[in-house]
């Protein structure tokens, strides 16, 4: 008689979970994602030794460590990075944002751009390629590209600049030929000029003391990291990012991330290509 009742998520439970998860993460599940969500939820309910959605949800909702929410976010999101991910933001950078920034710059003053977290380097190198290819004024200004991550293994990989097919799949083939060398094992080596143009450093975004040293940025790309933080850590991270920016500097978040769940510190700026946040001038 102790055959377990098969777990199922009801429509009301799905909606309750969906509302909560959206408020916490900004990730919204359409009705057609139902199967995907239910399956992962049931996996987590069983893995945490709960017997029903109701018990599991209580645990998720009241747990102070936020560990289970983090687990859920991990299995509901794509944690990989690749070249030209969320490309519309790079387009926005070269078409709109940089042109606004240079109106406030003296010719000798560098433009400082920070990719944090940079993971294995796809994001900062994409920025370098985008600037060189698509920003007409790239030769008129000195640009400093800094890339940081907490994970030194990732940073080492980034410095080496060797990528598999999956990482470069979104790059237009002419750019792949121009900036990479195809290796015999099917991977791609990014060229030395690009490797030299990015400065990689180890940083923990939650470490106020360490972050204090990073100043005077005009643009920060902080994509697909804050979504994994709890409310208080996000808040501290937002303070440190605010400190790192120049007045009028910009910050780009990942596509499901929004300052509306983090802090009112930044202004919302709507550009044709994207919504971007700005430190008030």
């Amino acid at each position: 008689m102790n055959a377990p009742v098969p777990l199922a998520i009801t429509e009301e439970e799905f909606q309750k979970f969906r509302d909560f998860f959206y408020r916490k993460t900004g990730i919204h599940f359409e009705e057609n994602k139902r199967y995907f969500v239910d399956k992962r939820l049931i996996d987590r309910i069983l893995a945490t030794n709960n017997t029903s959605f109701r018990n599991y949800f209580v645990m998720l909702r009241f747990e102070t460590s936020g560990k289970e929410l983090q687990q859920l976010i991990n299995i509901m999101t794509v944690n990989e990075t690749y070249f030209f991910r969320e490309e519309y933001q790079f387009t926005c950078l070269v078409n709109s944002v940089l042109n606004e920034i240079v109106t406030r710059k003296r010719p000798s003053e560098p433009i400082r751009i920070w990719s944090l977290p940079s993971s294995s380097g796809e994001e900062p190198y994409s920025l370098a390629i985008y600037l060189l290819e698509y920003w007409p004024r790239v030769d008129d200004y000195a640009i400093e590209l800094i890339a940081s991550d907490i994970d030194t293994t990732m940073l080492e990989k980034a410095r080496q600049g060797r990528y598999d097919q999956r990482s470069v799949a979104h790059l237009p083939p002419p750019l792949l030929r121009k900036y990479f060398t195809a290796l015999y094992d099917g991977s791609y080596q990014i060229n030395d000029d690009l490797r030299q143009s990015v400065d990689f450093t180890q940083v923990n975004l939650s470490d106020l003391a360490q972050m204090r040293a990073y100043r005077d940025f005009d643009v920060v790309f902080c994509r697909n990291l804050l979504i994994y933080f709890d409310d208080t850590s996000r808040r501290i991270a937002a303070e440190t990012l605010f400190n790192a920016l120049n007045p009028g500097g910009f910050i780009c978040l990942g596509h499901s991330e929004s300052m509306s769940r983090i802090t009112p510190l930044f202004k919302v700026r709507k550009f044709p290509e994207a919504i971007i946040y700005q430190k008030p001038r």
Partner: peptide, 15 residues
């Protein structure tokens, strides 16, 4: 290549 690499990643001296 105009992108420049500076060894001080952290910016100007604090105010």
């Amino acid at each position: 290549m105009t992108l420049i690499k500076k060894h001080d990643a952290t910016g100007d001296a604090p105010r």
